[in-house]
């Protein structure tokens, strides 16, 4: 399937998903669905660096939080402008704020993408565990910075008022956020799939397999690594941008939550890291499970569930669901072949 065809196909699927969600006639579906879609984007973004290139990022929460805090910073701009700028200019800014969600997503994507680029640059020569530790350190450093940055609320957090309805379409605002996240999911999956099938995808795979051999084959490994950290970071930031509106009150502990780091690793690992389908499967499965567990038991238990599933998969099916499917298909193929032989033998 060519990329434009894929985009059309996935937009149709997205439309069907939205239609079904509407049919349910319950706002809770949009509340829960938003979280699951957010994880689809995070898992897909993580997999571009972690699955395709083999660089494990423990700092997903930091990139997600960057997107969320970019939104907070932009939404609070009028306060700052009123204090420091002449009245005319301040009123112009006040009129432009808050910008629409797609603009906030772009802004969050740019900021998180730049930090991704910077992270890549600082960790260019780190591999394996050392890279993973560096990303963890980045998350800690960023969280400390945010906690101490009063403008965006510091440790107290910041309120972002969510409108009841989306002015332009007249639909419930959470429903609107759901649609935005649905479109972002389509974007993220399209990007991941396009990478997989392009020259870039080959380059990423060689980085994962053997960087020395990749260089010897002409692959500019350091540059490709920067491309991966930038794209991956940008998509995570885009996923975080609408979050302040969704949650209404953003504090560092929730934006940098453990759930983001853990889920964005666990979902691709459980789904399978070699293809864009893996993170999607993992996110849908784990995301839904967690939503159910959060409602029926508690959110702490739902994270525990993820941990246990991750351990189980690492031990039993290290290549995730996709790996399991592959094995199954091979077994069936082999069984068919031997069955066929037996028949010809009998004849």
């Amino acid at each position: 399937m060519r990329t434009p065809v894929f985009i059309v196909a996935s937009l149709i699927v997205a439309a069907v998903v939205y239609g079904l969600a509407r049919l349910a006639g319950n706002d809770y579906v949009f509340f829960a669905g938003y979280v699951i879609l957010q994880f689809v984007v995070l898992a897909t973004a993580w997999n571009i660096l972690g699955g395709y290139c083999g660089y494990v990022n423990f700092g997903s929460a930091a990139f997600f939080a960057l997107g969320a805090y970019t939104t907070v910073a932009l939404v609070k701009l009028p306060n700052l402008a009123a204090k420091y700028l002449p009245e005319g200019l301040a009123s112009v800014i006040a009129a432009a704020v808050p910008p629409p969600i797609p603009v906030l997503m772009l802004a969050g994507g740019v900021i998180a993408g730049l930090v991704g680029l910077g992270t890549g640059y600082l960790t260019l020569r780190l591999r394996g565990v050392f890279f993973a530790i560096a990303t963890l350190a980045l998350a800690v450093v960023l969280q400390t910075l945010i906690v101490n940055w009063d403008y965006v609320g510091g440790s107290r957090g910041a309120y972002v008022i969510r409108p009841q309805v989306h002015a332009l379409t007249g639909i419930n605002y959470v429903e609107y956020l759901f649609v935005m996240m649905l479109l972002l999911s389509v974007t993220a999956l399209t990007v991941a799939r396009a990478i997989e099938r392009s020259q870039l995808g080959y380059g990423f795979a060689t980085i994962r397999d053997d960087e020395l051999a990749a260089e010897a084959s002409g692959v500019p490994t350091l540059r490709l690594k920067l491309v991966a950290t930038t794209i991956s970071g940008a998509l995570m930031g885009m996923a975080g941008a609408p979050f302040p509106y969704y949650i209404g009150y953003l504090e560092p502990a929730s934006a940098f939550g453990l759930a983001y780091a853990v889920n964005s690793i666990a979902m691709p690992m459980i789904g399978g890291t070699t293809s864009w389908v893996g993170p999607l499967l993992g996110a849908l499965l784990l995301g839904t499970l967690q939503q159910i567990a959060t409602v029926t038991i508690s959110s702490a238990v739902s994270l525990l569930l993820v941990g246990l599933l991750l351990v189980a998969f690492v031990v039993i099916a290290p290549n995730g669901l996709l790996g399991l499917f592959d094995k199954l298909r091979q077994r069936i193929g082999a069984a068919r072949a031997s069955g066929g032989n037996a028949r010809t033998g009998a004849a």
Partner: peptide, 18 residues
């Protein structure tokens, strides 16, 4: 030092592309 996740032909594609 082959690229283990790529097929034999794909291994050759890498230098051809890059």
């Amino acid at each position: 030092r082959p690229f283990t996740s790529l097929s034999v032909a794909e291994n050759l594609r890498v230098p051809l592309l890059y």
